[in-house]
Structure formats: C-alpha cells, structure tokens
Amino acid sequence: MAADGKRTVGVFDIRIIIGGLIGVYGVILTLLGLLNNSDEELAKGDGLNINLWAGLALILVGVAFVAWARIRPLAVPDEQTSPDAKDEPHHR
C-alpha cells in the first residue's frame, strides 16, 4: 500500500504476464532455431529459419511489455478508503 492510498498491481499486471509468456516462448523458439536447424527442418519453412526469427521477435516484444509495466506501473483504485481515487488518471 503506497502512501497515496493506492497500490500497484505488481506481478498481476497483464503486461508482465503477456511479456513473461511471450518472452519465454521467444527463448524456447530461439534456442530451437539455433540448435535444431538442419536442412530438413528449414525446408518446411521454405528455407526461412522461422523459429529463430520469430523467437528473436518474441523476445523483443516480451522485453518491451515488461519494460512498459516497470516504467508505468498500473495502480489499483482503492474504493473503500478513497472513492475519489477512481477519477484520477491511475493508468496509461
């Protein structure tokens, strides 16, 4: 509970959850793309190493989401103690 009567949602912030899941998928795909890239594997994706590129893109997206959540934390309006909190810009 912060001093202004609001608490941040922390890990429950949807951006952390999205960023976390997308990031983990990115790591798995990147590793698969690096370690399991025989010609037969690549032939399926028409010669593109789709695991590697998609994995790297997902890592970037995941990091961006987590960074966004860290830089602009989302506060929970505490309606019991301060009904006015709802009107304040507590997100975005």
Binding site: I14, I17, I18, L21, I22, Y25, G45, D46, L48, I50, W53, A54, L58, V61
Partner: peptide, 25 residues
C-alpha cells in the same frame, strides 16, 4: 478478460509468422 488478451498475443505470434512463410512460399 486477462486470458483473452493473452491469447490475442499468442494467436498473433502464431499467425503472423505463418502468413509470412506462406507469402514467401
């Protein structure tokens, strides 16, 4: 709602590369 938002990103993460390979092919 949280799961819906989550699945949106996963489905886009799956369909976008699929579209790109398909277009390439």
């Amino acid at each position: 709602i949280y799961n819906e938002v989550l699945q949106f990103f996963v489905i886009v993460a799956a369909l976008l590369p699929l579209t790109i390979i398909a277009l390439h092919k």
